[in-house]
Amino acid sequence: MIWKILVNFILILLVSILQISFISNLPAGLNGLNIILLVIVFILMFSNYVLAFWWTIGLSLFFEIYFFLPFGLYSLVLFITLNIIYFLLYNFFTNRSLYSVLALIFFANLIYNILFIIFLYLFHLFFQTDFNITLNFDFISLQLFHLILNLFLAFIIFYIINFISYRWRPVFLVKKI
């Protein structure tokens, strides 16, 4: 049990460091990759809600410490995203197919970005914090490009997982928490 917790903690730390430090400095638009969302969707899909929940807590706590947003905002956004994706997974995309993964990544990115824009704008409105996002063509095309990158990475990860293990082949999911 303790080993399981330790391994998960180390993996959470690694994913956080990769996202915050390594990916942020990659060239050619690769800095738009969001492995946090990818990891959470894959855990939801191939494991269970509880593990995804713990990963969300761990990842969001690291991000709260390293980002300069109001404390709790990142956790809130990630939790809402997790729960919406869980709802979509068990009510609409009820198998472990590639299309389900890609659809869930799409919705996860969309919900994540929209929630952040809304919350950042609300904070700007009520607490006069900075809000430098302009919803113009450049911004939307950049977000689309990042979405395509994330979908491409999800595509690669999906096939690697399928290659590695027969346990995670497409099945219909019926079990709920």
Binding site: I23, S24, N31, G32, F67, I117, I133, L142
Partner: peptide, 10 residues
């Protein structure tokens, strides 16, 4: 240690 922000808008 990082160049990231929550949403990359450029």
């Amino acid at each position: 240690i990082s160049r990231s922000d929550i949403i990359t808008y450029s």
